[in-house]
Design a protein around this nucleic acid. Structure first.
Length: 265
DNA sequence: ATGGTTGCTTTGCAA
């Protein structure tokens, strides 16, 4: 099973791009999308279903919004991160799929950006990550395969930015933000890309502004974390930076993990 | 060099 996460930055603006990517021979079995910027009713469901994907969305008007596309049929789909009933932002959807030997859970999450510092946006970012931690603790306790994929809006280490000095005052690189990711990993979750390489310049985001792509001024903020039961079946990870050079690209590119799970017979 | 670009809710906001 190939699982990908991709912040699409507007699914309606990016539909041609997305369909072309899904039509490739290497297209993933499960695709976690973030920033669909669409209500569920306007999500281009039929175009994607016609390529053999099942579709579950958790959108909202104008911004945020997440979705999971899957060649496997959903056993369940759950919307929203528990722990704060008043939170109206659509940032979390969990799908459950039957595979050989049991089930696998896959989450598409769009973690808050948190900028600028010193505002309620940063407070919300940290509080959201604390809610995610509580959720993840309960899920890890199930001892099931779990894929926690998304735009974390966190730069883990200095090597994950071309110019880390540029990010010292940014919410994506604050000690509290980095600690939130470290605490998830401390539960026993494996971060796929760093599990297979310590190479630099493994970026997943290049700003539209100031020629960031042309200068390779990128950062690595999109991640796939695996529970131990999923990590046992993990064989490879990659970043598909080709799509950043396509016409009308998202500012993010897909991260992909290979897992040795198969549809039940 | 406090700029630059993109998508949506548009003449502002979020990223």
């Amino acid at each position: 099973m190939r699982v990908a996460t991709w912040n699409i930055n507007g699914v309606k603006a990016r539909l041609e791009n997305l369909l072309h990517w899904l039509e490739e021979e290497t297209a993933p079995d499960v695709v976690c999308l973030q920033e669909i910027k669409s209500v569920d009713e306007q999500f281009p469901r039929m175009e994607i279903e016609s390529l053999g994907y099942h579709v579950e969305t958790h959108g909202q008007k104008g911004f945020n919004g997440v979705a999971i596309l899957s060649k496997l049929r959903f056993d369940e789909a759950t919307r929203g991160l528990p722990g704060e009933e008043s939170d109206a932002q659509s940032r979390f959807i969990e799908g459950v799929f039957s595979v050989d030997g049991g089930v696998i859970r896959v989450v598409s999450a769009y973690m808050p950006n948190g900028n600028p510092l010193g505002t309620e946006k940063f407070t919300y970012k940290i509080a959201w990550m604390e809610r995610l931690q509580a959720w993840a603790e309960a899920r890890v306790a199930l001892e099931e395969p779990l894929v926690l994929a998304g735009d974390y809006n966190i730069i883990p280490h200095p090597i994950d930015a071309r110019n880390i000095q540029d990010w010292l005052g940014d919410a994506l690189y604050q000690p509290q933000s980095r600690a939130a990711l470290r605490r998830l990993e401390a539960l026993g979750l494996t971060e796929c890309v760093r599990a297979v390489t310590d190479a630099a310049e493994t970026y997943t985001f290049w700003d539209y502004q100031a020629g960031a792509w042309q200068k390779n001024n990128g950062i690595r903020i999109d991640h796939i974390l695996l529970s131990p039961e999923a990590a046992d079946r993990f064989s490879a990870a990659s970043i598909d930076k080709r799509v950043r050079a396509w016409e009308k690209p998202s500012d993010h590119v897909p991260v992909i993990a290979e897992l040795d799970f198969h549809a039940p017979h």
